[in-house]
């Protein structure tokens, strides 16, 4: 079972929720797809780290073969190529590695070379397998790393928690593609609601079953509840705005491993979600 945890904006508690759910599930896999700033490992402090690099293919030009036809320059939507004074220049940092220029070149002047853009670290924290995708600073896109990470766990039977990047752009789409269920984490602010709406729209487009976790719940704010009521979205859990939780989290501790109250809260959330997924499976089969 693959559960993706996402939110429109950063800082709402995606990592809090996914790390703690993986921790209470035991025998689970936590996957950090927030490759631009992976931080789940700071909580899990995994040991026995195995490291592998991720490379993409980028074009390299053989100047002797280039006819200066510009087919590649005109094709590239990202403008990673320029033809200047009959010399083709490739901008490695702009290239999105689609391979189109190489296919189009009529004289085979373009070939591929590997460019390392990041790495994947795999380790163990108690009974949780921790996989972190890490994009090198300055690279155009983390999607190749997310693809590689999700490939690794494609056939796993265990419970998998996917900690998504913030926002609702293609990097998030890639992260939720294989998910059985999406947990949307929202905080009860106007900004939080606005961003929840974006995440909600996205899971709708992907036709993914979903529910909402309200983090930093305040007694006098019903912004998120009202939106969920109107749209018939299930509220899976409410995490209080609590200084004990804040302190544990700021100290890099996993609340569910340190506090009986939060062990209970996240275990109950996990049960709710698993029931939802089983219900979905029954109604859609």
């Amino acid at each position: 079972m693959k559960l993706a945890v996402l939110s429109g904006k950063g800082g709402t508690g995606k990592t809090l929720v996914s790390v703690n759910l993986a921790a209470v599930a035991k025998n689970s896999i936590y996957v950090d797809c927030d490759v631009e700033e992976p931080n789940g490992h700071l909580f899990f402090k995994p040991v026995g780290i195995k490291n592998e690099t991720v490379a993409i293919k980028i074009p390299i030009v053989d100047a002797a073969l280039c006819l200066g036809c510009r087919k590649c320059v005109d094709f590239c939507k990202f403008n990673a190529l320029a033809a200047i004074v009959n010399k083709l220049i490739v901008f490695d940092d702009i290239c999105h590695s689609c391979g189109g220029c190489i296919m189009l070149c009529p004289n085979n002047a373009l070939t591929e070379k590997d460019k390392v853009i990041g790495e994947i670290n795999t380790g163990i924290s108690e009974e949780v397998k921790v996989i972190s995708g890490i994009l090198n600073t300055g690279e155009a896109s983390g999607i190749p790393i997310i693809k590689e990470v999700l490939n690794k766990i494609a056939a796993e039977e265990k419970l998998i928690l996917i900690d998504c990047p913030p926002g609702s752009a293609c990097i998030v789409m890639e992260s939720i593609k294989d998910a059985d269920y999406c947990i949307l984490v929202a905080e009860p602010t106007v900004f939080g609601l606005h961003n929840l709406k974006m995440a909600y729209e996205l899971v709708g487009l992907f036709n993914k079953p979903h529910g909402v976790v309200i983090n930093k719940t305040l007694a006098n704010s019903h912004l998120i509840e009202d939106f969920c009521d109107e749209n018939k979205i299930k509220i899976l859990s409410k995490i209080p705005y609590d200084s004990e939780l804040g302190t544990l989290n700021s100290n890099g501790e996993i609340a569910a491993r340190k506090s009986a109250v939060y062990k209970e809260l996240f275990s109950s959330l996990l049960q709710t979600v698993v029931k939802e997924v089983e219900h979905e499976t029954v109604t859609h089969s």
Partner: peptide
Amino acid sequence: EAASSPGGAGVKAAQIVV
């Protein structure tokens, strides 16, 4: 034409000027 590019506008604009 580079003004509306999703990325690499500088490269394309330079190409146009050249």
